[in-house]
C-alpha cells in the first residue's frame, strides 16, 4: 500500500529537518567568521582609539565608538524607568481588564513597527518640530521608544515568575505594595530585567535606519546631548555604501560583531551568576 514505510519516512524527515537546522547554524557561523576573518587584521589600538581621517578613509573609529556607547545609555536612561514602571503597573497595581488589554496591544504594536518608521517619526517630531536638530538626544529618545516594548515584556515576564507567596509574606509582614515591589519583587526579577536591558542595548548598537535620521552622522566627539553623533553601524553603512574604504568597513563590522558577541556572553554569564547565587 505505502510507497515508503513509516520507519523510512521518519529517517528522511529527521534527515531533512537536521539538514535545515545545520544550514541555519552554518549561516550564522559563516557570517561571524567571514566578518572577523576580513576585519580582525584592521583592529588595533590605533583603529579603536584615534579619530578618523579623510571621511573614514584612514585613521580610526574612536568617535563612533563613543557614539555607540552613549546612544544606548541615553535610550536606556529613558526607557528603563518607563518600561519597568509599566511592567510593575501591569502586574502589581491593576487587574486584568480593558486598560491592561489596551496597554498590551499598544506594546505589541510598538514592537512590530519597523525602524525606518521610528526614524521618520524621530526626524519629524524630535529633530524638526521640537527643533532639537540631529543630535544625541533626538537619537536617544527615538531609540528609547523603540526598545520600550522589549523592556516592558521581559520585565513583565520576569515579575510574573516571582512566586506569589513572596508577596503574601511581604504583605503579611506589614509591607506596603510599593515596599513589596521594591524590596521583594524587583530584586527577584532582576535577572530577567538585565536580559531585557542587554537585548535592548544590542538592538540599539545594531540600529541604523532610526539612528541616521535622528542622531545624524557627524564624525566627531559630541560635547553635549545636542551634538550630532555617528554610531558604528551608521559609520559602517556609510563606509560600505559609498565605497569609502572596504578595509575600514570590515574593521568596523568586526568591532560591531565582537561587541554583540561580548554582550551576549556577558548576559549569559550574568544570568548564570544570578541563578547560581539564588539556589
Amino acid at each position: 500500500m505505502r510507497l515508503v514505510s513509516p520507519k523510512w519516512t521518519q529517517r528522511i524527515a529527521v534527515g531533512v529537518l537536521g539538514a535545515a537546522t545545520l544550514a541555519t547554524l552554518l549561516i550564522l557561523l559563516f557570517i561571524i567568521v567571514f566578518v572577523l576573518e576580513k576585519g580582525l587584521r584592521t583592529i588595533c589600538w590605533n583603529f579603536l582609539f584615534t579619530d578618523p581621517q579623510d571621511m573614514g578613509r584612514a585613521g580610526g573609529i574612536f568617535p563612533t565608538l563613543i557614539g555607540t556607547l552613549l546612544l544606548p545609555l541615553l535610550a536606556l536612561a529613558v526607557a528603563l524607568p518607563l518600561g519597568v514602571g509599566t511592567a510593575v503597573y501591569l502586574t502589581e497595581y491593576t487587574r486584568e481588564g480593558r486598560l491592561t488589554r489596551i496597554i498590551r496591544f499598544g506594546t505589541d504594536c510598538l514592537a512590530g513597527i519597523p525602524s525606518i518608521i521610528f526614524g521618520l517619526f524621530g526626524f519629524i517630531f524630535f529633530v524638526t518640530i521640537l527643533k532639537m536638530g540631529w543630535c544625541l538626544l533626538a537619537g536617544g529618545l527615538t531609540l528609547a521608544i523603540m526598545i520600550l516594548p522589549t523592556i516592558i515584556r521581559t520585565t513583565e515576564e520576569a515579575i510574573r515568575a516571582v512566586p506569589y507567596s513572596y508577596r503574601e509574606v511581604s504583605f503579611s509582614l506589614g509591607a506596603t505594595r510599593w515596599a513589596t515591589v521594591v524590596k521583594v519583587v524587583l530584586p527577584n526579577a532582576l535577572p530577567g530585567i538585565v536580559t531585557g536591558v542587554m537585548l535592548s542595548i544590542g538592538r540599539c548598537i545594531g540600529e541604523t535606519a532610526a539612528v541616521i535620521f535622528t542622531a545624524g552622522q557627524a564624525l566627531h566627539l559630541p560635547h553635549s546631548v545636542f551634538d550630532s553623533v555617528r554610531t558604528m553601524s551608521v559609520h559602517f553603512y556609510i563606509l560600505a555604501r559609498e565605497g569609502i574604504s572596504a578595509k575600514n568597513a570590515y574593521g568596523t563590522a568586526a568591532v560591531l560583531i565582537i561587541s554583540i558577541l561580548l554582550l551576549n556572553v556577558t548576559t549569559y554569564w550574568l544570568m548564570h551568576r544570578f541563578i547560581g547565587r539564588r539556589t
Partner: peptide
C-alpha cells in the same frame, strides 16, 4: 498586618 503576624502553611523564606 504589623499587629497581626502570620505564618503560612509552607515555609516561605524570602
Amino acid at each position: 498586618r504589623k499587629r497581626v503576624g502570620m505564618v503560612f502553611a509552607l515555609p516561605v523564606p524570602l
